[in-house]
Amino acid sequence: MVRLVTRRLVWAVPMLFVVTFFSFVLVSLVPGDPARSVLGQLATEQQVSELRQELGLDRPILPQYLDWLGRALRGDLGHSLVTGGDVGRLMGARLAPTLSLVVLATLAAGLLGVGLGMLSAVRGGALGRLIDVLSVAGLAVPGFWLGLLFVSWFAVHWRLFPATGYTPIAESPIGWLRSLVLPVAAASLAAATAVAKQTRDAVLDVLSREYVRVFEANGLSRRSILFRHVLRNAAVPIISLLGVVCAGLLGAAVLIENIFGLPGIGSGAVVAAMQHDIPVLQGAVVSFTLIVIAVGLVVDLLQAWLDPRVRTR
């Protein structure tokens, strides 16, 4: 168990290096003068050379990166080019809405998907075909478009939920939940159909195993067979997929936060990209990568808990 966590954490370090270095290289790839490109044609020559120094662009890429890395390791992610605010603090302030959205959407996709998938595996027939259709539809319907439709129906037309805005959980848990219902629904429906399909395949696979027949023949209750033995053994691939879903939801969060006016890292990154605020974007890259790594760790731990063959290795 300890080895598993250690291995995951050791792997996280090069991962962070590679991803941040990659985005650094991207910045250095800007054709012509990067600082000019960032500031636009209207900026004065002096502004451009100041920015060049600020970004350290007058030096080769590797020293630039190492310099940034050194400061980042001390917790200093730099300052926003637009507001001058500390990037680390900015990310911290925007973390809660993003995490709320992604965690709730993953849970929703998991519960809905596993429920539907189980049902279709056990009942089969029409429900199974419906899930096939839904999983294709889930891929096809963009979450942000669905979000807009939800706003138009549930917020504008029926006024059931707020169209935009975010209430911190500390302020009002009910308000927090209400502000997240539509974003979570828009973000998680597609994921839920993918989880349902995976669940059905995994459950059908386990149902065909010998021990299910042995348990049934020896009179164990159907409920215990399905929910204790089958679901637990089918959970390993389902949780793998949920990890992937969770990472994918981070990408969806960029759009969903934008639509529902959630003050998260994703919507912040969109604004930063429009303003060419490179340090803030780098901060978003670091935050998202850290979240992806954390999700990977949680997935590993859950699987080890569920599967003794992983745990006792």
């Binding site: 991803v19 990659f22 985005s23 991207l26 910045v27 990472a247 981070l250 990408g251 969806a252 960029v254 759009l255 994703g266 990154a269 969109v270 930063a272 990209a273 490179i278 974007l281 780098q282 978003a284 890259v285 998202f288 990568t289 979240i291 992806v292």
Partner: peptide, 8 residues
């Protein structure tokens, strides 16, 4: 994180 990198 693909979407963020695209923004970069």
């Amino acid at each position: 994180p693909g979407m963020i990198l695209l923004l970069v």
